[in-house]
Design a protein around this nucleic acid. Structure first.
Lengths: 138, 138
DNA sequence: GTGTTTGCAAAGTGTTTGCAATTTA
DNA sequence: TAAATTGCAAACACTTTGCAAACAC
């Protein structure tokens, strides 16, 4: 499977040992479309693909990948932490069901007038979450 | 104490019975400056003011106030839920220490180009969090 | 009095940690 | 083989819930 080799390269570049678990998760995360997922979603996905990985390792791996710049943590709302495989500059829709996060295409949304941070502080990131509710008018 | 009467009016208007706990918390929340706080911060604040209230009631009250439109829930990051006594249209700074949330004055920041929500959805709220880190260059 | 609210303790989520066993280089 | 990684179970932080006692109207 050529996917595995690609992931192996990514891990090497990030200085992470290509263990079975990291390779398997890497394939799930970095093959195909960009995704937003929680630790639990990834665990379920792994299970569905007959990959046995403990939740602790899922968490470890997600954080290592994030530290290596392969993922981006997204704080949308509530208790769960989402990880985004799209590390580029973009923002998010968050659905009221509390379980769905979608990308807003880069450029579709812009901030105007970044406010001056308080003394001794600087902006490290700007997160915009557009909360959505269903517009049923029945 | 005239504060108590003001809070009593607010509670009445919101259809909430003016119980001792709701009055006391109301005074803490709606007297003086706008605040951002977690349930635990409010509990500590209450204790410091010799007000005995269980954490369960703090949570209940925060949610009831939020539902009544007296507070606004702010999802900045991490596990804790912040409640903002400023229910107006504004956004937030979030400090890297993970414990401080500050208002960005209304108008200092604007979104340009609100993206089209997916089919059947409509925008219910836009949250902007400007994450800050200390700019120490020592 | 009657329905609402409170407070406790217990249960529930989502996440992290300690550490022995396993795997990688 | 030495160092890094895994997995389990236990610990954790934050929040919610069930229900009897207390309270507001």
């Amino acid at each position: 499977m050529e996917n595995k080799q690609k992931i192996r390269d990514i891990l090497n570049a990030a200085g992470l040992r290509p263990t079975r678990q990291r390779l398997d998760l890497g394939v799930l995360l970095f093959t195909g479309e960009d995704r937003h997922l929680t630790a639990e979603m990834l665990r379920d996905d792994a299970f569905a693909n007959n990959i046995r990985i403990s939740l602790a390792t899922i968490y470890n791996t997600l954080h290592q990948f994030t530290e290596a710049g392969l993922l981006r943590e997204v704080a949308v709302s509530g208790a769960k932490t989402y990880f985004d495989t799209n590390t580029g500059d973009h923002h998010h829709f968050h659905l009221e069901d509390g379980n769905t996060v979608l990308d807003i295409a880069h450029g579709e949304l812009k901030v105007e007038g970044i406010p001056t941070p308080p003394e001794g502080m600087e902006v490290s990131q700007i997160d915009i979450v557009v909360h959505l509710r269903s517009s049923k008018s029945d």
